[in-house]
Structures are given as structure tokens and as C-alpha cells.
Design a protein around this nucleic acid. Structure first.
Lengths: 202, 202
DNA sequence: GAGGCTATCTATAAATC
DNA sequence: TGATTTATAGATAGCCT
């Protein structure tokens, strides 16, 4: 017997709370089912007991219902734990662009390297050749410049070494008699030991 | 007054179906609420009307409830409709690889085109120059081949036209007096109208 | 926990406004 | 549409097994 209307607040007595849970739970699921059948509605109900047990009802595929719910709500809760479809679509689109770019670059590279030019038109070949010639020119110039610099550097070193030799010779009070090691340059001064008058051998 | 118990099957009368939907819907949501409060349970209910309108109740955050549901079920449906974090990580990794490849290709391209060689070593410059020379050789060969083919084709056409002319001349029983249209080749036979003896103008 | 009982409370079908 | 009414079907609190 029901003694007066009950208060809608947590039932403190554990036993009766569990009994009530069991009864009302099945009542709720039954009503959910009836509603879906009577009114041809899409209904889903999810119940977790205090202990964490799951009870549920779904008139159709619950996944569909949840998905529909998510879409209806403008979706955001799924995004919380999982990237949205939209986000991934964006990534994929970006990847397609990148793949295209890679292909483009590879084709370009191939052509610059003289590969797969078998299907190029004369006009295209001419363009490639022009580009390559230009590249070659630039690279050769750069190479020449580097060599030049190198030579310049060596000359500077030579000068430096000469100065050093002169300086050292002045300090020991005699004629220069040797070259700094490491130098392979030919000097215009006789430094070899010899018998006879200097310069007589030229 | 309720006349006898109702059958749990779709109510065909649209009006009474809508009325029943309205009443039972609110009844269901109310009961869902009562259950959650009385028994301290986590309850969520989702109802879509036939027209697609959404009605729902959730004792706590419905997102949490759905998430918990998904986890409880081992889920699957979340993965089905939404990419997993892992999947996205994979995509991103792939993208990083692609970005690196693009950079590599671009640098290579730049070098082949003689750009940004300012910081290359002599050795590297030499390698690039060698490559470019090789490329140039290939491209030029290809170009030469194309020209050759072109010339060959033109020659073949010339022969064909000559044959044709001879054949036609034989059929009309006179000396060749014209060339097939489209040919721009210079012939060694006088075909122009003229006064006087043929060949007298050369 | 699950099921049964029963007195009540609640939901609601149908009609009416 | 929606609100109210009313009679009744259905749900359930409390108690027991």
C-alpha cells in the first residue's frame, strides 16, 4: 500500500532504494518502449545504477540515435574526446594537397634531371634545356667564384708568409734561409745550399 | 475515461497519436527524472518525434552519460562515426613525413635550378654541376632525337607526295602539273604557269 | 536481489471546452 | 493546437516470502 504520495528525493534506505530502482527502472524502459511503438518515435534510454550497472532501451539502433542526437545538438560532446569528422576531413584535404605538391615537385625534379622527358614536347624540352643551361651557368659561376676566393686566400697566405720570413730574417740578422713549412710555392730567392757563386746556375 | 486496455502498437490516427506522444513523452521524461532522483542513478533519455523534434532528459551531463555508455559497451560506435585519437595521430605523423619530403624536394629543386647554392661546398657544387651537365646532355639528346624524327617524318611525306604525283600524272596521261595541297616543299619541277619554254627561267 | 500482494497513487485515453 | 475533465488502466511503496 502506498502511504501518501512520496517525495521525489533520494531514498536514503538502501534496500528500498534498490527495490524502487529495480521497479521504476523496468517501468521506465517499458514506457520508453510503449512510446516508441505507439507514436512511432525514436527513443533511447540509458540508465546507470549507483553501482555502475547499465540498463538501456533503444527503439532502433542506439548508436544511430546517439549520432542523431549529436548532430541535432550541433555536436561538440563527441569532439571533446574525439576529433570531429570535420577536423579529419580538413587534415585529409591538406594531405591531398601535399601529395599533389610532392608529385608536382617530383615531376619537376625528374625533368630537371633529364629523366622521363620521353613524353615532353619540343617546346617543353626547350624550356627545360633553357632552365638547365641557366642553372649550369649559375652553378659554374658560383664554382668559379669559390675557386677564385680560394686562390685569393692562398695568395694572402703567401704574402703573410713572406712577411713573416722577412721579419724573422731581420731578427736573426742574416739572409732568409728557409721557408715556413707547409708552403709549396716556388720562391724567386735562392735558398738552396750550393757551392760557387749564387745565381750562377740560372 | 480509458475504455479498456490499449494495444501497444502504432496509433494510426494522426491526431490521437500526436496527443498520446505529447502526454507519454512528458510522462517518460518525468519518470526518468524521478528515477534519477529517487535512486541516485545516472539517467538519460532521448526522444525524437516523428517530425524529427528532439526531447531529452539527462540527470547529469548527457555527454558524460553517453561517453560512459560508450565505454561500458566496449565501444565501437564512437570509433565508427568518429576517428580515434590514434588514427588522427597517424595522419599527423604522415603529414610530418610529407612536409619533410616536400622540403627535401624543394631544396633539391632549388639546387638543380642554381638557386641557393651560395652555401654549398665546392664538392657539392661539383656534384650539382655534374648532375646538371648530365641532365642537359639527356635533354639535348632527346631534343635532337625529336628533331631528327621530325625531319624523317617530313622526308617520308615528301616521298609520299612525290609518289602520289607520279601516280596521278600516269592516270591523266600527261606530265605532272601540280602538287598535292598542304605541301610547302620546293620541287625541282616547274609547275607555275608561264609564257615561253619551260625551264627557260632557271 | 526477485516475485507477489494490495492499497493507493499516477498516468493517461477520450471527451469536452 | 492546448487545457481541463473524468474514469480507468497502469505503476508502485511497503510489506512479505
Amino acid at each position: 500500500m502506498v502511504r501518501g504520495k512520496i517525495q521525489i528525493k533520494k531514498i536514503e534506505n538502501t534496500t528500498s532504494r534498490q527495490v524502487t530502482f529495480s521497479k521504476r527502472r523496468s517501468g521506465l524502459l517499458k514506457k520508453a518502449h510503449e512510446l516508441s511503438v505507439l507514436c512511432d518515435a525514436q527513443v533511447a534510454a540509458i540508465i546507470f545504477s549507483q553501482k555502475g550497472r547499465l540498463y538501456d532501451f533503444a527503439s532502433s539502433d542506439i548508436q544511430k540515435t546517439i549520432k542523431r542526437y549529436a548532430e541535432y545538438k550541433g555536436e561538440y560532446f563527441v569532439a571533446e574526446s574525439h576529433p570531429t569528422e570535420q577536423y579529419v576531413q580538413g587534415l585529409k584535404k591538406e594531405m591531398v594537397t601535399m601529395v599533389e605538391k610532392i608529385e608536382m615537385l617530383e615531376v619537376h625534379n625528374q625533368k630537371l634531371m633529364g629523366k622521363s622527358v620521353a613524353f615532353c614536347s619540343l617546346k617543353e624540352l626547350q624550356e627545360i634545356a633553357t632552365q638547365i643551361e641557366k642553372s649550369l651557368h649559375i652553378v659554374r659561376s658560383r664554382k668559379a667564384k669559390l675557386y677564385e676566393d680560394e686562390v685569393e686566400k692562398l695568395k694572402a697566405k703567401e704574402r703573410e708568409l713572406k712577411d713573416e720570413r722577412v721579419r724573422l730574417s731581420g731578427r736573426v740578422g742574416e739572409e732568409p734561409s728557409g721557408m715556413p713549412s707547409g708552403s709549396k710555392e716556388k720562391e724567386d730567392v735562392e735558398t738552396d745550399l750550393s757551392i760557387g757563386f749564387p745565381k750562377s746556375r740560372s
